[in-house]
Design a protein around this nucleic acid. Structure first.
Lengths: 334, 334
DNA sequence: CTGAAAGCGCTAACAT
DNA sequence: ATGTTAGCGCTTTCAG
C-alpha cells in the first residue's frame, strides 16, 4: 500500500497544526472559513481520506450496528434487512451483518466478534436451535443496546419487536373454521422459538373455542424447506385433513403443488393457509391466503428503537415489547 | 460505558508486560504456555474483550470486505450475499454492506464511506442508473482490490464475475424459435447495464440466424416491478406477440397472471420465458421456463477472487472476467 | 521467552 | 481562531 496521506501532511503543507486540520475537515464552525477551505482544497489535492478507524478508536465508538440474522437467504430476512439499512444509513450508521445459518454455535461466535468490533448496538433474530442465550449477556453487562426482532428471547429482560403471533395463529385457524373446515393440519417449525410456539397456541385456542379437540397427529414440526415440507404434507394427508395451516408461504406453495399433483382442488377439496405475505402469494394458483408479516416495517422499527437507545444511552430496565400490526390477507386458497 | 478492560489491566494483575499479554492472547507460540494460560484466565475473569479497532489501526487493515449492492430486497441479491458471507466468514473477513437502492448518488456516497472505513476490498454490483464510474478510481489508485459481479463496468480494466448474458439471451430466444414461436416480445431493463444489453444482443442474434427481422416495437424497457411490467405487457400485447422473453422471473410471473386474466393459455396460445431460476418458477402454474442464474455461486466466486487478490496483494493488470456457468431450465411455460 | 519504547491517525482538553 | 499535549488500545520492532 502506498503511504496514506494524514492530517499531518496537510498541516505541514499549510504550516498549521493537525488539530486545526482535523477541525477544518470536520467543518467545525470555530475554524476560519478561509482556513477551512484551504484545508479541504489541499486534502482533495493530496488525495486524503479520513481514517475512520483511528477516529473511532479515539472517539470510543464505531457508528456501526451489528445485525445478526438467522438466515439471509429468504424474502422475509431481506425485507427486514432493507428496513434496517434504510433507517440506519439515514442516521449515519453502518451495518455489520453476520448470519448464523440457523446454527447456535455460529451465532455465539458472531456475537463475540461483533462485540469485539465495538458495534454500538445489536439487532438480532435467533437461530432455530439456540437454547441458552448467555452470549448476549456480554452486551447486557456493558449496557450496549440489543433489540431482538421476530425470533426473540422469551425469558430475559430485553427489547423486542414482534408481531402478535398468538393472534395470527388464532385468526388464521378461526378463519378456516368459520369457512367450515374442521380438520386443520398445521405445519410449523421448532417450538422453542416464540414465533412458532405462539402460533400453535393460537391455533389451539381457536379450536378450543369451536369445541374441536386438539389432535396431535395433525401437527408436524419441520424445517419448512421443500423436502421437509413434502414429507410433512404426505404424512399429514394420511390423517385426511380438510385444510392446511402452514407457517410459511413458501412451504404452503410447495404444499399446494403437491395437492394439485394428487388431483385435489383448492380450496374446494382442501384449503391451504400460509404465513408471511410473500410476493409469491399473488403469483401462484390459487392465490394464497396468508398473514401479512411486514418485514420492512419490522426492520425500520427495530433500527429506530435501537438507535434511540444508543443515542439516549438509555436501556429500558424492563422488557419492552413493540408489536407490529399484522393482518389476515384472504385470497383464493382458503 | 463502564471502563473497558485493556491488556494493561491484565498485565498489571500478572506483573508482566502488555506485550506479553498481547502475544499470549493471540496465542503466539513464542510465549510460555503456562503464562499464556494465566493470561487467558485473567482475561476471562476480568471480562476482557479484544479491541479490534485499536488492533486494526495498528495493523493497518480492517479484515473487512465492503459489499455494495444495487438492491438488497431481491432473491438474487440475497443468494449472492449468502455466497459472499459464507466464503468471507470462512476466511475470517467481516462484511460491511451498503446498498444503493438503484441510485447512483447513493452508490457514490457509499463507495466513499467504505473507502474511509478502510475495507480491505470491495464487491460491487452497479446501480441501474450509474454512468460514470470514477468513484471507483479511489480504490484502483490505492490498489485496493475491487471485484464487480453481475452488473459490471464495461469499459474500465477490472475484475468481473458474470454469466454469459449474450449466450443466455441467445439460447432463450433460440429455444422459443425452435418451438415455433415467431413473434417474441422482450421485456428488459436499462440497457446501459451490461446484463440487459448483452441479453438483448443475444436475442437479436438468434432472430438473425432464423432470418427474422428485429422489430423494435416488440422490445420494452422498464423497471421490472409489478406495475411497470403490467404496463409493458399490456402495451406489447397490442403487437400480438406469440411469446414473451422477460429478463426476470418475478416479472414473468406477473406477465403470466395477466395473460391468464385475458383468458390466454400458456404455452399453447402464448409462451413465457423468464430469467434467474428463482424459487417461484417451480411454484407457479404453469411452471416457468427460465435461465439458471446461480447467485450463491456468483457470490462465492466473487468473494474467493477478492480474498485471493487481497492476500496476494496482486491485482490483475488487465481486465479479468470470470464466467459462471448458466443454463436453460425448460419447464412448462415455454 | 519476555520487556521497553514507539507509533498507527485521530480528536479532546486545555491553553493561548 | 489556533496550537500543545496527551492518549484511545494495540502490535511491532529491537533488545535482552
Amino acid at each position: 500500500m502506498d503511504k496514506e496521506v494524514t492530517i499531518y501532511d496537510i498541516a505541514e503543507k499549510l504550516n498549521i497544526s493537525a488539530t486545526t486540520v482535523s477541525r477544518g475537515l470536520n467543518n467545525n464552525p470555530v475554524i476560519n472559513s478561509k482556513t477551512r477551505e484551504k484545508i479541504h482544497a489541499i486534502a482533495k489535492d493530496l488525495g486524503y481520506r479520513h481514517n475512520t478507524i483511528a477516529s473511532n478508536l479515539r472517539k470510543q465508538q464505531s457508528k456501526t450496528i451489528g445485525v445478526l440474522l438467522h438466515e439471509v437467504n429468504s424474502n422475509f430476512s431481506t425485507s427486514v434487512l432493507a428496513g434496517i439499512e434504510k433507517t440506519a444509513s439515514a442516521a449515519g450508521y453502518d451495518l455489520l451483518i453476520a448470519h448464523s445459518a440457523e446454527d447456535s454455535t455460529k451465532e455465539k461466535a458472531n456475537t463475540k466478534n461483533l462485540l469485539n468490533k465495538r458495534v454500538d448496538g445489536l439487532i438480532v433474530s435467533l437461530a432455530l436451535n439456540t437454547q441458552e442465550t448467555d452470549h448476549f449477556d456480554f452486551f447486557f453487562e456493558r449496557k450496549i443496546p440489543v433489540v431482538f426482532f421476530d425470533r426473540v428471547i422469551t425469558n430475559s429482560k430485553c427489547t423486542k419487536v414482534v408481531i402478535d403471533n398468538f393472534k395470527c395463529g388464532y385468526d388464521a385457524t378461526f378463519h378456516l373454521l368459520k369457512k367450515g373446515y374442521k380438520k386443520i393440519a398445521h405445519i410449523t417449525a421448532n417450538l422453542t422459538r416464540n414465533v412458532y410456539y405462539d402460533r400453535l397456541e393460537g391455533y389451539k385456542q381457536a379450536l378450543k373455542e369451536k369445541k374441536i379437540s386438539f389432535n396431535e397427529d395433525l401437527v408436524k414440526i419441520c424445517s419448512l424447506d421443500k423436502e421437509a415440507t413434502i414429507e410433512a404434507v404426505e404424512e399429514l394427508l394420511k390423517s385426511k385433513p380438510d385444510a392446511f395451516f402452514i407457517t410459511n408461504d413458501f412451504a404452503a406453495a410447495v404444499c399446494i403443488n403437491l395437492l394439485h399433483e394428487r388431483g385435489l382442488n383448492i380450496p374446494k377439496d382442501i384449503a391451504v393457509f400460509g404465513f408471511n405475505n410473500d410476493v409469491l402469494c399473488d403469483l401462484i394458483t390459487p392465490k394464497l391466503s396468508t398473514i401479512e408479516y411486514p418485514g420492512m416495517q419490522m426492520g425500520e422499527v427495530a433500527a429506530k428503537e435501537l438507535i434511540r437507545q444508543i443515542k439516549s444511552n438509555n436501556i429500558p430496565k424492563k422488557t419492552k415489547t413493540i408489536t407490529i400490526p399484522s393482518k389476515l390477507i384472504i385470497r383464493e386458497s382458503a
